[in-house]
Design a protein around this nucleic acid. Structure first.
Lengths: 191, 191
DNA sequence: ATTTTTCCTTATCATTTGTTAAGGTTTTTT
DNA sequence: AAAAAACCTTAACAAATGATAAGGAAAAAT
């Protein structure tokens, strides 16, 4: 049951069988089909979501009405808008399904209860955020001073599997460039 | 003693006097003068640093030899290279003093000991990383699809105090634009 | 106080990236 | 199977940003 989530927890902390069962009991599975929305702009996010299977992506809409991909979510990743979840303010993100999904969701109340009652759960969360923060900072650092072409090449090295599962125009948006520019770059890199 | 650090801890968690003393006992103060380096590229970061007083900034050097500002650090902020600190791999960052500083430093061993023995310390760290992660993601989200001019205007609103303490060319570097472009923008915004 | 260094702005020209539009695949829907 | 929608590439032109260089103001060093 929930092999992805269990694997993710055990990667980082040691849990007794009782603790493991207590944690899992708070998660609710949810199935989603392609093009469905997990969250929409304006929602106050009630539950955080772990991707057991499938793929999703989140995007925001800027002041000019243009959309920008913020994050992808594949098996073993958390997805959603933590800002809205923790502050209980309206989300600015939409989270849409790319490939039919099974996600495991957890309410804020459950999250807070688990933090209080299961110390390894708090440790897991600290490590999760610590790693996420460091990874995000590296993402920013590594893109500093790089041309769009260099950003593309690195992205290709780091996440080769994404290219077979995500349309190029979403990758372009994630990279902060237009699909036209990405197309130009791909032609140069290929030759 | 260490009023900045105490204020920062108490903002987020409740500590008994004993716990407070135990935490503080692991920090070592360090004074730094303008232009000194707290860390340099290639160092393996041994201690994380809390800024009690003063200002610093960190920058990396890219493959073309150009420098890029990654982060500023003022009173009440943590500064350094968490990637190197946690992984004990060489840092790619330089951390240089802008205004003479007093920083409080903590070794990895102390950090791990405090995590294990003082639960509110772990809670503090989880909240710190959670907030840092959400803030960093917002920084990325908010800059998506914005022109350099819009990025500048928002930066001006969010951190007005930085402009009186940091040279413009470092701010330009942090924003990912050249000083020349920042100058052009400032002329437009002013008129 | 003088000299040196750092910092900011401006101008010019080159390069990169964005915008718009069109055409052809591929994928999805009916 | 046919129609519709989504996706990717290319071209031509426009706009934004970078690179280089020069001059002057401000700050730091002597």
């Amino acid at each position: 049951m929930y092999p992805g989530l269990l694997h993710e927890l055990h990667k980082r902390v040691t849990l007794s069988p009782g603790q493991e069962a207590a944690i899992l009991s708070h998660f609710t599975p949810k199935k989603l089909k392609k093009r469905q929305f997990l969250h929409q702009e304006g929602d106050i996010i009630q539950r955080m979501s772990f991707v057991e299977k499938g793929a999703l992506y989140s995007y925001s809409t800027d002041a000019h009405g243009a959309q920008h991909v913020v994050q992808f979510g594949f098996e073993g990743w958390w997805i959603g808008d933590l800002y809205s979840f923790f502050t209980q303010k309206p989300s600015r993100l939409n989270v849409e399904v790319l490939e039919s999904c099974e996600v495991l969701t957890l309410s804020l109340e459950s999250h807070e209860l688990l933090l209080k009652t299961i110390p390894p759960y708090e440790t897991y969360m600290r490590i999760l955020y610590q790693n996420a923060y460091v990874a995000l900072l590296s993402r920013i650092e590594n893109s500093l001073g790089l041309s769009a072409e260099e950003i593309y090449s690195r992205f290709l090295e780091q996440y080769p599997f994404i290219f077979s599962r995500v349309p190029l125009h979403l990758i372009a948006s994630y990279m902060g460039i237009t699909p036209v520019t990405l197309s130009r770059i791909r032609r140069q890199v290929a030759s």
